[in-house]
């Protein structure tokens, strides 16, 4: 198996910075923004984008911190019975909740779209956002559901047999996106 690096640390930082700017641009500022990461690595990405948003908005909105949390989708997945039982992860919503907010879901890799489908169901059990958007570090294609991302770090055409690995400093100690062939699809 050969692993090929697709994004290095600096590329990832640049991609997240661009995503943060795009979020501010489309949202026309910070009003009602809430970022929710999908465990495991989506949470770290959401926290980093939220940190960038906070610093970009500081000049106009001193003292504002971008609300950020995590949304576990395990108990809403449609493939639970096809795999060994998955461990759940905590869901932590910002104190202001999600009702009437613009929620940006953040995940590392967008693939079939089934995780996001589960996330939309999970979100509906927590409240009614004004809008839900999707930010992903990597979009590798092969969608099985009518779901599309609003903010993409890197479009990465891939074969279903290939495996995309995202490693982040906070979770893995090193930072890179790699793609390798063979094995089971990620």
């Amino acid at each position: 198996m050969t692993a090929r690096a697709v994004l290095q640390q600096a590329d990832i930082t640049r991609a997240l910075t661009r995503i943060a700017h795009e979020i501010l641009e489309q949202n026309r500022g910070i009003d009602g923004l809430v970022l929710l990461g999908i465990p495991t690595r989506g949470v770290e990405l959401a926290e980093r984008i939220a940190g960038l948003l906070t610093s970009f908005a500081a000049a106009e909105n001193p003292g504002w911190t971008c609300p950020v949390g995590s949304l576990d989708v395990t108990m809403y997945r449609d493939d639970l019975g096809r795999n060994p039982v998955r461990s759940t992860a905590p869901t932590r919503l910002p104190a202001e909740g999600i009702d009437g907010k613009t929620v940006v879901l953040v995940d590392d890799v967008l693939y079939s779209g089934r995780t996001i489908r589960a996330a939309l169901d999970a979100l509906a059990d927590h409240g009614r956002p004004a809008a839900v958007r999707l930010a992903v570090l990597v979009d590798r294609g092969h969608r099985e559901l009518p779901i599309r991302p609003d903010y993409v770090g890197k479009n990465l055409p891939s074969a279903a047999s290939e495996r995309v690995n995202v490693r982040l400093t906070g979770t893995d100690g090193i930072e890179a996106v790699t793609i390798e062939d063979g094995g089971s699809a990620a």
Binding site: D72, M75, Y76, L80, S87, T88, A89, P90, T91, D121, D125, H126
Partner: peptide, 20 residues
């Protein structure tokens, strides 16, 4: 016990039912 923590968190919500 950790899974039970995640289950307990869902029991604090208005919608307590999960589709699992």
């Amino acid at each position: 016990l950790d899974t039970a923590e995640d289950m307990a968190a869902t029991q604090q919500r208005e919608v307590k039912k999960l589709p699992t």
